Amino acid sequence: DVEPGKFYKGVVTRIEKYGAFINLNEQVRGLLRPRDMISLRAENLNVGDEIIVQAIDVRPEKREIDFKYIP
């Protein structure tokens, strides 16, 4: 289970104008929005990159997770 405030290692699987999709594993995926990329620009991300993200909002009923990148 993903808990708000905890840090996780994930892999960038898709990049859109509104953010990057980060997979923690095959069943868990969330969104890293540009406003939550402190000191990281979306254009510096590539599909396949491994990054550490913090879960900031977890909505299990919608199967949605928002992440924040903190260097």
Rank of each mutant, 00 (worst) to 15 (best):
D1V: 13
D1T: 14
V2K: 03
V2F: 10
V2L: 08
V2Q: 03
E3W: 10
E3C: 12
E3K: 14
P4E: 09
P4C: 13
G5F: 07
G5N: 05
G5E: 03
G5D: 03
K6F: 08
K6S: 06
F7S: 06
F7C: 13
F7G: 01
F7K: 04
F7D: 01
F7Y: 11
Y8L: 01
Y8E: 00
Y8V: 01
Y8I: 01
Y8A: 00
Y8F: 03
K9A: 07
K9F: 09
K9E: 03
K9R: 13
K9P: 02
K9W: 13
G10Y: 03
G10Q: 00
G10M: 05
G10T: 01
V11F: 08
V11I: 14
V11P: 00
V11N: 02
V12T: 01
V12I: 14
V12A: 00
V12D: 00
V12K: 00
T13H: 04
T13L: 03
R14G: 07
R14S: 11
R14P: 00
R14Y: 05
R14H: 07
I15R: 02
I15F: 03
I15Y: 01
I15A: 01
I15S: 01
I15N: 01
E16I: 08
E16M: 14
E16Q: 06
E16V: 13
E16G: 14
E16Y: 12
E16A: 13
K17F: 11
K17R: 13
K17A: 12
K17G: 07
K17L: 10
K17S: 12
Y18F: 12
Y18H: 06
G19P: 01
G19F: 10
G19Y: 10
G19H: 07
G19I: 10
G19D: 02
G19S: 04
A20G: 01
A20V: 15
A20Y: 13
A20L: 12
A20M: 10
F21Q: 04
F21C: 08
F21S: 03
I22K: 00
I22C: 02
I22A: 01
I22L: 03
I22Q: 00
I22R: 00
N23R: 13
N23W: 12
N23Q: 14
N23C: 14
N23E: 13
L24Y: 01
L24H: 01
L24P: 01
L24V: 10
N25P: 03
N25V: 07
N25S: 14
N25Q: 06
N25W: 10
N25Y: 08
N25T: 11
E26W: 14
E26F: 14
E26A: 15
E26M: 12
E26G: 13
E26Y: 12
Q27F: 15
Q27E: 12
V28S: 04
V28K: 02
V28W: 15
V28M: 08
V28L: 13
V28I: 13
R29T: 12
R29G: 13
R29D: 05
R29E: 08
R29Q: 14
G30F: 08
G30T: 03
L31G: 01
L31W: 06
L31N: 03
L31R: 06
L32W: 05
L32T: 02
L32F: 05
L32G: 02
L32E: 02
L32I: 08
R33D: 03
R33A: 06
R33I: 10
R33F: 05
R33C: 09
P34G: 12
P34H: 14
P34L: 15
P34A: 14
R35I: 09
R35P: 05
D36R: 06
D36W: 11
D36S: 06
D36N: 14
M37L: 08
M37N: 06
M37P: 03
M37E: 03
M37F: 07
M37Q: 05
M37H: 04
I38L: 10
I38S: 12
S39T: 11
S39M: 14
S39C: 15
S39I: 11
S39F: 15
L40H: 06
L40W: 08
L40P: 04
L40K: 06
L40R: 05
L40I: 12
L40V: 08
L40S: 06
R41M: 11
R41Y: 09
R41S: 12
R41Q: 12
A42Q: 12
A42E: 07
A42S: 11
A42W: 15
E43F: 13
E43G: 12
E43W: 13
E43V: 12
E43C: 14
E43H: 14
N44K: 11
N44C: 15
N44A: 13
N44R: 11
N44E: 15
L45F: 06
L45S: 00
L45E: 00
L45V: 10
L45P: 00
L45Y: 04
L45C: 07
N46L: 10
N46H: 15
N46P: 00
N46M: 13
N46K: 15
N46G: 09
V47I: 13
V47R: 02
V47M: 04
G48T: 01
G48W: 04
G48R: 01
D49E: 06
D49G: 02
D49T: 05
D49K: 04
D49H: 04
E50C: 15
E50Q: 11
E50R: 12
E50T: 15
E50K: 12
I51K: 00
I51E: 00
I51Y: 02
I51S: 00
I52D: 02
I52R: 05
I52C: 15
I52Q: 04
I52G: 00
I52L: 10
V53P: 00
V53R: 00
V53A: 01
V53W: 02
V53N: 00
Q54Y: 12
Q54A: 05
Q54V: 10
Q54M: 15
Q54K: 08
A55L: 08
A55G: 02
A55M: 05
A55K: 02
A55P: 02
A55Q: 02
I56K: 09
I56H: 05
I56V: 10
I56G: 04
I56D: 02
I56T: 08
D57E: 14
D57H: 15
D57L: 11
D57P: 03
D57S: 15
V58H: 05
V58W: 07
V58E: 02
V58K: 04
V58S: 06
R59P: 02
R59A: 04
R59W: 06
R59F: 04
R59E: 03
R59N: 07
R59I: 04
P60S: 09
P60V: 11
P60R: 09
P60W: 13
P60G: 08
P60K: 10
P60A: 10
P60T: 09
P60I: 10
P60D: 06
E61Q: 10
E61P: 05
E61Y: 06
K62Y: 08
K62S: 11
K62N: 08
K62I: 08
K62E: 08
K62F: 09
R63G: 15
R63V: 06
R63N: 14
E64Q: 14
E64C: 12
E64A: 06
E64F: 13
I65G: 03
I65A: 04
I65R: 03
I65T: 03
I65D: 04
D66S: 11
D66N: 08
F67I: 04
F67W: 09
F67M: 04
F67H: 03
F67A: 03
F67P: 02
K68S: 09
K68G: 11
K68N: 04
Y69R: 03
Y69E: 11
Y69S: 03
Y69D: 04
Y69M: 07
I70V: 14
I70A: 09
I70P: 04
I70F: 11
P71W: 10
P71Y: 09
P71K: 12
P71G: 14
P71C: 15
P71H: 09
P71I: 09
